[in-house]
Simulated scan of single mutants.
Amino acid sequence: MKVHPDIPGQDDPGPGRRLAVDVGTVRIGVASSDRGAVLATPVETIPRQTGFKDRDLGDIDRILELIREYEVVEVVVGLPADLKGNGSASVKHAREIAFRIRRRLEAEGSGVPVRMGDERLSTVAATHALRASGVSEKSGRKIIDQAAAVAILQTWLDGRANALAAADEKGNLPE
C-alpha cells in the first residue's frame, strides 16, 4: 500500500507555530516551531495511552492542550513509510492519532489543519544524531521520539519555505 504525505505549503495557513507529532506504539514525541515557522525544537514525550478501540485518553488530551498552549496554526503528524513510499504497520497508528486530533479540533470549532508529514528516516536520523552527541541508547529512549518529531517538523518547515519561495518567484501563492 502506497502512502502519500501532504505537501508542505499547500493550503498553507500562514504565519505561526507548527506542532509535529511522532506517533509510536509506546510514546508520542512532540516538537514545535517558532512563530516564524523556521526552526523546530523538542517539546515533550507523551506516554501513548489511546489504542484503536479506546475512547480518547490522556495522550490525545495532552496534544490538544499543547496545540492551545502554543497557539498552533498547523499540526503535522508523521506518516511512516519506507523509502519506496510503502506504508508500514505504524501507518494505522499515525492515521488514527491524526484522525482523533482532527476530530477534537473540529468539535472545538478550531480551524487548525492536521497534516500528514513525511517521516521517512526521521527516527534513524534522530538516533544517529543522539549517538553522535554522546547520548547513550538507554537515556536516549526518553528523548528519541522528541528528536524524531523535530526531524519531521524541520523537514516540513523547510519544504514549506521552499514552496512559498517558489510561489513568490512565480508571483502566486500556493493553494
Score class of each variant (00 low, 15 high):
residue 16 G to M: 00
residue 83 L to E: 14
residue 165 A to I: 04
residue 52 F to T: 08
residue 2 K to E: 13
residue 165 A to Y: 09
residue 138 K to L: 03
residue 8 P to M: 00
residue 79 L to I: 10
residue 91 V to H: 13
residue 131 R to L: 08
residue 62 R to D: 00
residue 118 D to Q: 10
residue 107 A to W: 02
residue 70 Y to I: 11
residue 133 S to H: 11
residue 150 V to E: 06
residue 65 E to P: 01
residue 69 E to A: 14
residue 159 G to M: 07
residue 53 K to Q: 14
residue 138 K to V: 00
residue 46 I to T: 07
residue 59 D to M: 03
residue 141 R to M: 03
residue 83 L to V: 07
residue 59 D to K: 04
residue 19 L to Q: 09
residue 154 Q to W: 09
residue 74 E to C: 10
residue 166 A to V: 03
residue 11 D to G: 03
residue 118 D to F: 00
residue 117 G to I: 09
residue 94 A to W: 11
residue 174 P to T: 14
residue 126 A to R: 08
residue 146 Q to K: 11
residue 27 R to L: 06
residue 10 Q to C: 08
residue 166 A to T: 01
residue 133 S to P: 03
residue 55 R to M: 10
residue 147 A to G: 14
residue 141 R to H: 07
residue 16 G to R: 01
residue 45 T to F: 04
residue 174 P to L: 10
residue 136 S to I: 08
residue 27 R to Y: 09
residue 9 G to T: 05
residue 107 A to H: 07
residue 37 A to I: 05
residue 137 E to I: 01
residue 114 V to D: 07
residue 48 R to V: 01
residue 1 M to K: 13
residue 91 V to Y: 10
residue 90 S to E: 12
residue 35 R to I: 10
residue 45 T to W: 02
residue 97 I to K: 06
residue 126 A to N: 12
residue 3 V to R: 07
residue 44 E to A: 07
residue 73 V to Q: 05
residue 113 P to K: 05
residue 162 N to V: 05
residue 82 D to A: 11
residue 162 N to R: 15
residue 18 R to M: 14
residue 171 G to D: 00
residue 112 V to I: 15
residue 103 R to Q: 12
residue 9 G to W: 06
residue 85 G to P: 11
residue 84 K to A: 15
residue 109 G to A: 06
residue 39 L to I: 15
residue 103 R to T: 10
residue 31 A to K: 04
residue 152 I to W: 12
residue 34 D to Y: 10
residue 56 D to N: 09
residue 12 D to H: 08
residue 40 A to F: 12
residue 154 Q to S: 02
residue 166 A to E: 12
residue 4 H to R: 13
residue 116 M to F: 01
residue 5 P to N: 01
residue 39 L to Q: 04
residue 86 N to F: 11
residue 21 V to Y: 03
residue 102 R to F: 00
residue 72 V to N: 00
residue 60 I to A: 06
residue 142 K to G: 09
residue 69 E to R: 14
residue 152 I to K: 12
residue 120 R to S: 07
residue 30 V to R: 04
residue 67 I to M: 06
residue 28 I to F: 10
residue 137 E to H: 13
residue 36 G to P: 01
residue 171 G to M: 07
residue 83 L to S: 15
residue 128 H to V: 07
residue 128 H to P: 02
residue 77 V to D: 11
residue 17 R to H: 13
residue 160 R to G: 01
residue 138 K to N: 00
residue 92 K to W: 06
residue 155 T to R: 15
residue 124 V to L: 15
residue 123 T to E: 05
residue 35 R to V: 11
residue 167 A to F: 02
residue 150 V to C: 04
residue 145 D to F: 09
residue 63 I to R: 03
residue 142 K to I: 05
residue 97 I to F: 11
residue 145 D to K: 11
residue 51 G to T: 14
residue 6 D to V: 08
residue 24 G to M: 12
residue 98 A to Y: 09
residue 28 I to G: 06
residue 57 L to Y: 07
residue 143 I to E: 07
residue 152 I to T: 08
